[in-house]
Design a protein around this nucleic acid. Sequence first.
RNA 1: GCAGGUGUAGUGUAGACUGGUCUAGCACGGAAGCCUUCCAAGCUUUCGACCUGGGUUCAAAUCCCGGCACCUGCACCA
Length: 491
Amino acid sequence: MNIEDLLGYARRTGMFWPSAEIYGGSAGLYDYGHIGAMLKRRFENIWLSYFVERNQNYFLIDGTTILPEKPLVASGHAERFNDILIACKKCKTYYRADVLLSDLGVQLNEGATPGEVDVAVSVNGLKCPKCGGQLGEAKAFNMMIDVALGPDRSDHGYLRPETAQSAYLNFYREYSLLRQKLPLGLAIIGRAYRNEISPRQGLYRLRELIQAELQIFFDDQAFQPDLSGFSGTRINVVPYVTGKLESMTPDELVSRGYPSFYVYHMAIIDKFYRKILGVPDSKFRFLEKGGEDKAFYNKIHMDIEIDIASWGGFKEVGGLHYRGDYDLTSHTKGSNKSMLAKSEGREFMPHVLELSFGVDRNLWAQLDVFFTNADGRQVLSLKPYFAPYSAAVLPLQNDASINGKARELFLQLSRKFRIFYDSSGSIGKRYARMDEIGTPYCITIDYDTVDSESQNFGTVTVRKRDSREQDRVKLPDLENYLQASLSVEFD
RNA sequence: GCAGGUGUAGUGUAGACUGGUCUAGCACGGAAGCCUUCCAAGCUUUCGACCUGGGUUCAAAUCCCGGCACCUGCACCA
């Protein structure tokens, strides 16, 4: 499936579409519809129970999306997101002004303005190194989106560029409240904002995005989760040093020099994607970043990648980043508040391991990987517990005798599950509609259900989405039947 | 941001080159009714669109210009 097909599918099924689309939309902004919002919530809930709630030391918090300027200066975002760009008028190549000028032997003062860059360019007679063309005017480009606060709008703030900062800012209070124990995990599911130059490719590059992140604060001399439970798994990794896809056990990864706490989290992420979501082995991998591609503060940086056909191959849907003590050290300097932890007489700055997931990208990936269109049959083969609707209740025909029973069943099941109810059109058409949005079970009430003479009295058929096979199930057994099929097996 | 392409009912499209016969066709879809005892059946009625703003022309969905959005490539993406 290509991007346009997927966008069309998303639109007609109620998944997502451009924000303010009746006004033509705006690049990089998407709204979720009645199906997409449910799918998103399923993803977030399962993510939360899998990565956070199973661990007694990990917690969900929340934070504002507007942050004042100071923490973002301390974190380095204000400076690093404030590049001055300069373009060649002839070949249109963009350069970062500081990089371009220093390559051409001209030193700029830190914090130079675009005007000063223009002066430096003309005084030194600089030309485009690529084509020799004339350079255009320098322009400040800020990846963060400004917010002007207060009655005279003089307080400067930003929309947060990543949810991670909210976790770092709240670390020390939570560390104190939670009786100073490490490791401590703080998870946030929320929105972040980036003024992307050219948002493209559906949900890939957004100006407003949803992140699900877990920041784990730990003592780097004492964080050794138990890897033994994963000894049988093999993880797809492209290490930076070899650049080649390898399938390695956790032990092999440790012997390659990756710390065991890092490998442990690779293993649980691998399990999340391959087992919980059901992504095929060949479509999942870690890609290690190094050199220029790696953020300077990361000690180890791997992208979590899924092979997404509509995006042309393996694409980043998350990351596992060992950030060292960069974040807490930065905020200690910026705020002048100590964030040192104590353990066994030692005082130290906790280190951070970040598990970061782009929710929008992951939803797109699920549609891309699990939607199939073959023989005129369109099916979204999500794991049942991810499906927006868990089941549909369908009277075989629009007939008073079975409609009443169907309504009754809908009300009963709706107390525990999200149920779709539809009594119009042929049964085949209704099945097809449910296949398209991934509803795993269609419960059909037929004449036998309500015919006390029939040997099938009091039973319904449950039709399974992927195989189209039907089970005959007694009404009192239905809740357990669904419950068993929809529960998530984490272990 | 640059270059090229695209923009027609809820969805997918025909029409555009060669302006008028387009009061814009078709399929799916929605609504109402009939029929129908398990995989998008059929029949009847009905709903619904030329991205936006200018211009050319007797006449614009069609040609021209601007804007917006999307697609592809390039650039950018601590």
